[in-house]
Design a binder for these strands. Structure first.
Lengths: 98, 98
DNA sequence: TATATTAATGCACAAATGTGCATATGCGGG
DNA sequence: CCCGCATATGCACATTTGTGCATTAATATA
């Protein structure tokens, strides 16, 4: 599987895409935060994070009970602009507005 | 379905991605040419072209027995850079070299 | 009209994908 | 050592996706 297909397939799923939007702030986010933010179950979110990790888009770090995910710090220029072009295509989905 | 997911999903399939690479030259290509170039069956290629058309990435034109597909002339800046970033990620697949 | 060429589509089906439920694992605090 | 919280994973399953085969549709030419 080529690099581009791997990246595109990882992004072409609504939940994962929204995760990337969140992680794109460069900060760390644990799975439980993402579950809550996107209204997804724990196992569901965990698997999506595994997909994104396998695609090389994110990295994780154990921190006590938590696993902190963040945008991979070593993304190529092409991948970065691919992701950013995709993010630019639509406005963020409405979050639970308080 | 959001605009970005539609585009990403259309691109995240190897055959379609290679079609886009070919059509990215801006010229017209009929289905039979694409079948041959990528070694895919007629029905298979026809359906992929329908996907790409539905995603808005390509347009088609009847010309006698042929249907000529070409890169959509009205792609937004974001879509264009998304596609080009993806294409830049890997070298073209080897074609039947003569 | 009959035939050939090119493309689209109905039907079937195998494979891949996303998800829930239950359980296991990793880690910290009593 | 046992319990609780956070995360990962095995299993099952419904849905989606990609593809082939056969047929239909559109167009051209004899």
């Amino acid at each position: 599987m080529t690099q581009s297909i791997k990246i595109l397939a990882a992004l072409a799923e609504p939940t994962r895409f929204e995760v990337i939007r969140i992680l794109w702030d460069g900060r760390e986010h644990c799975v439980c935060e993402l579950m809550e933010a996107l209204g997804k179950s724990q196992s569901c979110m965990s698997r999506h994070m595994t997909s994104l990790k396998n695609a090389g888009l994110v990295v994780d770090r154990r921190d006590a009970q938590w696993v902190r995910y963040r945008r991979s710090p070593e993304l190529s220029k092409a991948i970065t602009s691919l992701v950013e072009a995709a993010l630019a295509l639509d406005k963020p989905l409405k979050r639970k507005s308080a």
